[in-house]
């Protein structure tokens, strides 16, 4: 069983804190994504779990066993952790063919040759590479190499699988189909997966829970729906989906939009002083007749299934997306009115 626990994990390189106070309990069979901008510490965290880096502080347990404890000096070597991993660069060995690559973990476990071949072929079937068994990596496309790496990571039936941006080098179409394949394989084998990505749609569609990271810190851990609708802070709101931020001031149980003294929203978080109102473009409705605020149509972009408007309100541009709208309904320079729905509020961040 592979519950994974990270308890107050810190990793410092000199005076750079790559990971700061990481805490998570991952349930057995859960699919977790680490999501965040480049350099936020995703790979480092994964490498800490795999055992390629030693935590500066903190405890990591897998299935109840401590595999790393900085205080006690416990540290289990990567080869003893029973983890499967797919690297950002695939790391398929160029001097071995597909069968040997995939069969290597079994060879290390001294599995007999016949059984090895049988299990390798079963894995190759799973990743749709059966016909490529005899090929060498330089005869495979990037997507095929990635699937070899996946098969190799799964062949020894690890209960925990780590994936580091495995789809980042693929084209959009292949990425889409691999996404579903990985999800399907994970369901079929019932393994725990940690999936690193900086692509939010990947994280949204595949994960049970998402860990949003920034600058080495966990910003929020939650289900995709929670992350999207109730972002914990301005950074998360900004990173996941599109959002308009509007400066505001919190007073008592209302938050007043700066420059629109009559416009206010509830203050469920009991903020005080400088604050920010956040509203997603698809949660704004636009009309010619009246609404919460008045603005001037600045620009329109026709997107096929929707129209992306830029409306100038006082000196701020507000982005509005209307599904199924008709491009010609409004014209630039026209006075329009906006209504905000599902408004979020945050304390002001620097």
């Amino acid at each position: 069983m592979a519950e994974l626990k990270l308890h107050h994990i810190y990793k410092r390189f000199g005076n750079v804190t790559a990971v700061g106070d990481f805490n998570i309990d991952v349930a057995d069979g859960e699919f977790i994504s680490f999501l965040g901008p480049s350099g936020c510490g995703k790979t480092t965290t994964l490498r800490l779990i795999a055992g390629f880096e030693k935590p500066t502080e903190g405890i990591i347990t897998i299935g109840g066993t401590e595999i790393s404890n900085a205080e006690k000096g416990v540290f289990l070597a990567p080869e003893k952790r029973g983890i499967g991993m797919v690297f950002q660069s695939y790391a398929v060995w160029p001097h071995m063919n597909v069968v040997d690559n995939v069969g290597y973990p079994l060879k290390i476990q001294n599995v007999s040759k016949e059984e090895r071949l049988q299990r390798v072929m079963k894995m190759l079937e799973l990743v749709h590479l059966k016909e490529y068994a005899e090929r060498f990596p330089n005869q495979l496309s990037g997507g095929q190499q990635q699937r070899v790496a996946l098969a190799r990571a799964l062949v020894a039936q690890p209960s925990l699988l780590l994936l580091d941006e495995p789809l980042s080098n693929l084209d959009a179409k292949l990425r889409e189909s691999m996404r579903f394949e990985i999800s399907a394989i994970q369901k079929e084998l019932g393994i725990t997966v940690i999936y690193v990505t900086h692509d939010q749609s990947e994280a949204m569609t595949m994960s049970d829970r998402i860990v949003v990271m920034s600058m080495g810190k966990v910003q929020q851990i939650g289900r995709p729906y929670e992350i999207y609708t109730q972002p914990a802070n301005q950074m998360v709101a900004d990173f996941i989906g599109l959002v308009n931020f509007i400066p505001a001031t919190a007073k008592g149980d209302r938050i007043f939009v700066n420059g629109h003294e009559t416009l206010s929203f509830p203050n469920p978080k009991k903020l005080a002083g400088d604050a920010v109102i956040a509203v997603r473009p698809e949660n704004i409705t636009i009309s010619k007749t009246g609404g919460m605020v008045e603005g001037v149509m600045n620009h329109r972009f026709y997107m096929g299934d929707s129209v992306d408007y830029r409306v100038k309100v006082k000196d701020q541009i507000i982005r509005v997306i209307q599904k199924g709208a008709v491009y010609g309904t409004y014209h630039d320079g026209e006075t329009v009115y906006l209504d905000f729905d599902n408004v979020m509020s945050f304390a002001k961040e620097e």
Partner: peptide, 27 residues
Amino acid sequence: MDPTLEEAARISGSSPLKTLWDVTLPL
């Protein structure tokens, strides 16, 4: 040499010495 090639062997269960023999040396 890409060091993740060696790391891939480690995570596959191979000791550092065996990794040297199976991956580093042939490469």
